[in-house]
Design a protein around this nucleic acid. Sequence first.
DNA 1: TTGATGATTCGCT
DNA 2: GCGAATCATCAAT
Length: 216
Amino acid sequence: MGGGALSPAGLGREFFARPAWLVAPELLGCVLEHRSDEGVVAVRLVEVEAYGGGDDPASHAWRGRTARNAAMYGPPGTLYVYFVYGMHWCVNLVCEEEGTATAVLLRAGEVVAGAGPAARRRGTGPPRDLARGPARLAQALGLDGSWDGADLCGPDGALAIRAREGEPPPIDIGPRVGVVRAAETPWRFWISGDPAVSAYRPGGRAPRRDAGGSGP
DNA sequence: TTGATGATTCGCT
DNA sequence: GCGAATCATCAAT
């Protein structure tokens, strides 16, 4: 990509028009930026997870299209924002062609600009925890349900994502956090050793019990 | 209409 | 380390 431009190129729709498990690792190191009246907040992505469509038991699209996951079926570059646990918002970026319903969950990032506005929204806490976790990341950026279905590649300039600069970061791969079904599918990607990566937590209330040998 | 669950976070012991 | 907070969504009745 020939680009000597002062500002890094934004990721186009073609970038997202590929399988989520392929897009996810390439999102690491990219910067998501939100401009609002509160100011500009930018987050460098350090942890993401890929989710498939109807054939991924862990995906919201597993049981087909509903009112909630409708945005997941939109064109690549669409935002899918959902409400969970009665109090938290999580942000996804839709991948592949329209109707496929695959997406990448933004799990954690490092606030590289606008730490002031971000901290004001988040409340007290260590700076490195500002966007450490999917709900924290959404809150730090000021994203909620009103952004569900928004177009990241569209004319609205309030939200934009910039390509990674420099060489690819070292990446680790592992199972997704907090999912019960397809718990072993290694579709979680993070930057090796980055302090802003969230802690791994196995699927909620179905810990597999192995015969013998639990604990030290 | 009712009941259970969830791609989480925070606070307390 | 463990449980509460808190409510939209979905499947079953």
